[in-house]
Write a protein that binds this DNA or RNA. Structure first.
Lengths: 134, 134
DNA sequence: ACGAACTTAAACACTTTTCGTTAACTCTGC
DNA sequence: GCAGAGTTAACGAAAAGTGTTTAAGTTCGT
């Protein structure tokens, strides 16, 4: 059994970066070039992106439909967007307006600044009316 | 730029499996042995596990503290466990008892059978009092 | 006990990733 | 201009992942 996608080197660099160190400082600490720190950090990001995309695929497996809430949308407009999309494909969403807003705020807290969606959010709608926020 | 972790082969097998086909049926369709279908399916599962673990690492990056809710815990006991852990490290959790129970039920529905937590749940606590359920 | 579905392990060719170097490049603030 | 932070391209060597086969092993219902 193996760990996640990230190599020891990649996690090491990400930890130092989280502490606010520059690439040059990290390069000195781990005894390599800053260019190498840059590529290690970059491939770490790439691995994280791939991890997210992999889990999104799982949702698409039972999802009938994908609907994208664009960056900048007012949180209170989200339910009607989703209800509208679901209606188009004749699916009754399991959640009412209030609990839908709660679901999105709880599952993507980093995307909700006050009433504003600050990142594109992918919403997968299954035949059963279940929702996944990718 | 590449897609997620899963290869075309792996996604193909997972899709067929989702449709209820057996490994032998899939092997016939994609012209290989059932043993190979088994291996492909298994490595797909392994990739999915790794994707999840990778994203969990991100939470540990800004998490000050990890607290594990053991399998079999009563859902109503979860808040006091978390509040207790947070208090030990002088962090005020952002959520009250009710919304904490809601958060865990919404973010890990498959772990909550009635009032019982049926899987170990990792809770990451950040300095800001935010919680992530890994 | 039999067959069907599924799992496991070892071995192979093949491809991809990763880490590392060197050197040149952009961008920003002073 | 220039120093500091970061990015990019080209290349090599070592390591890891993938698809495949073969063969032996479960587990489960009839």
């Amino acid at each position: 059994m193996k760990d996640g996608l990230l190599t020891d080197r990649q996690m090491e660099v990400l930890r130092y970066r989280k502490q606010g160190l520059t690439q040059q400082q990290i390069a000195d600490i781990i005894s390599t070039s800053k260019a190498n720190v840059c590529t290690i950090e970059k491939s770490a990001m790439e691995n994280i992106r791939r991890a997210k995309e992999t889990l999104e695929f799982l949702y698409t497996l039972d999802a009938t439909h994908l609907c994208i809430i664009p960056n900048g949308t007012d949180l209170f407009e989200v339910p009607s967007i989703i209800f509208g999309e679901a209606e188009k494909i004749n699916i009754k969403v399991k959640y009412d307006t209030i609990s839908l807003i709660n679901r999105i705020r709880e599952s993507r807290p980093q995307c909700c600044k006050a009433r504003c969606i600050c990142e594109d959010v992918h919403v997968y709608i299954t035949d059963a009316g279940e929702l996944y926020f990718g």
